[in-house]
Design a protein around this nucleic acid. Structure first.
Lengths: 194, 194
DNA sequence: AAATAAAAATACATCTGTGTCAGTTTTTAT
DNA sequence: ATAAAAACTGACACAGATGTATTTTTATTT
C-alpha cells in the first residue's frame, strides 16, 4: 500500500471519527461511514474490514494526539493550584459538551468488546492522568500550596470523581453548577479556597 | 387482559431481565427474549411491542424493588459509621460482580434514548441516594462520629466516586483493592479511621 | 358436544446491514 | 502510447431482525 493509500486511510479515519462522535459506536454501520466519506461500499472494504477495526484505529489516533491538555499548561510557570484548576476547567468543558466527543462511543465500544486487559485505551488514559495529578499535588504540597497526606489516593479519587461526572453527563443531565461544586469540593479537600 | 395475562407479562419481564443482564441492552433482540421465555414470536408481540418497551418496564420493576439495601441496615440500632460502611460494602459487591446487574444495559439504554429529563430512572436513584447519605452524615456529625463541614457536598461527592467506580468496573478492569482504597479514602475524609 | 372466544404458534413479506466479486476506471511505468 | 498494476464501483447473495397476518391450539360457554 503506497503513499496515496495512507493518505486516504487517514482521511477515512478522520471522517469516521465525526460519525462516531455523532452516533456513538454501536449504531454506526459501514454504510454510514461510506456515505460520510463519499466513497463506495467496496472501496471502504479495501481499507478496513469492519466498524470495530475502524473505531480502534480512531481511538489510536486520538490517544496519540492526547496528553496535550496537560503539557500546554504545565510549561507555563504557573502555580500547582493554577494548573490543577486549569485541568479541571478543561475537563468540565469536555464533559459538558458531550455531543462533541468520543466519550459515549468509547464506552459503547468497551461494553461490546469486553475488557481487553492489554491495550486498554481508557485504562491507559486513566492511569497516566492519575500519575500526572499525583505529581502535581506533590509539587503543590512541597510548595505549601496544598495540604494532602495521601497524594496518590487523592489523585485517584479525583479521577474517579471525574469519571463519575463524565458518565453522569451522558445519562443523567448534569449542569455546569454541579461540576463547579465538585471542583470546589476537590480544591477544598486540598486546602485551597476557590 | 385478565389475571392470567398479567401473570405472563410478569413472567416475561422477569425472564427478559436475565437476558438484559446477560447481554446488555442493544444486543438483545425480540428473538432472544422469545427463546429465553420459550414462547413464540407472535406470542411475545401480544404483550410487548419492542425491546425498548420491555426494558423500560424491567427498569420500572427494578426501581420499585430498590431502596431496600438502605432500609435493611438503617432499621438496626447501628452507628452512622456502621451503616455507611455497610452501604459502601454493598456497593462494592454490586459493582464488582458486574456480570450480574443491569448496570451496563441501563447505560446502553440511556445512550440510545437520549436523556429523558423526566422519569429518569438513574437520576432518581442518584438523587435519592444522595439524600439518604446526606442524612446519614448529618446524624454522624451530630453524634460526633464524623467530621464534615458540607454534608450535602460530601454526599454528592461520594455518589460521584461510586458512579466513577461503577463505570470503570465496566470498562477498565477494577480490583477489589481499588474499591477498598476508595472506601477508606471516603471514610478518612469524614474523620473515620477504618 | 358444538360453537365461540381467547391465546399462542407459524409463516410471511419487508427491511437493513454485511462482505464479496466481476467488471471498470484511473494511475503508473516503460 | 500502451500495457500492467492499483484503486475503485455497484450489484449480488446472504443473514438476521422486524412486525403482521393467518392458522392452529386451547379454553370457555351454552
Amino acid at each position: 500500500m503506497g503513499e496515496k493509500s495512507a493518505q486516504k486511510r487517514r482521511y477515512i479515519l478522520e471522517t469516521a471519527r465525526k460519525v462516531f462522535v455523532e452516533k456513538g459506536f454501536k449504531k454506526v454501520t459501514m454504510k454510514d461511514i461510506v456515505e460520510a466519506c463519499e466513497i463506495s461500499r467496496g472501496g471502504l472494504y479495501l481499507y478496513f474490514d469492519n466498524t470495530s477495526q475502524i473505531f480502534m484505529e480512531v481511538m489510536k489516533l486520538e490517544s496519540e494526539e492526547a496528553d496535550d491538555v496537560f503539557s500546554d499548561s504545565i510549561t507555563e510557570d504557573a502555580t500547582a493550584a493554577d494548573i490543577l484548576v486549569l485541568f479541571l476547567q478543561e475537563q468540565k468543558k469536555e464533559l459538558l459538551r458531550k455531543k462533541d466527543t468520543l466519550t459515549q462511543a468509547v464506552y459503547e465500544y468497551y461494553f461490546e468488546n469486553q475488557p481487553p486487559k492489554k491495550d486498554n485505551f481508557l485504562k491507559k488514559q486513566f492511569d497516566s492522568a492519575v500519575k500526572i495529578i499525583e505529581k502535581l499535588i506533590e509539587i503543590g504540597v512541597d510548595n505549601g500550596e496544598f495540604y494532602c497526606e495521601d497524594c496518590a489516593g487523592t489523585a485517584r479519587n479525583i479521577m474517579f470523581v471525574l469519571e463519575g461526572l463524565k458518565i453522569s453527563a451522558q445519562t443523567i443531565t448534569i449542569t455546569p453548577e454541579t461540576v463547579d461544586r465538585e471542583i470546589i469540593y476537590i480544591l477544598k479537600s486540598l486546602g485551597v479556597e476557590a
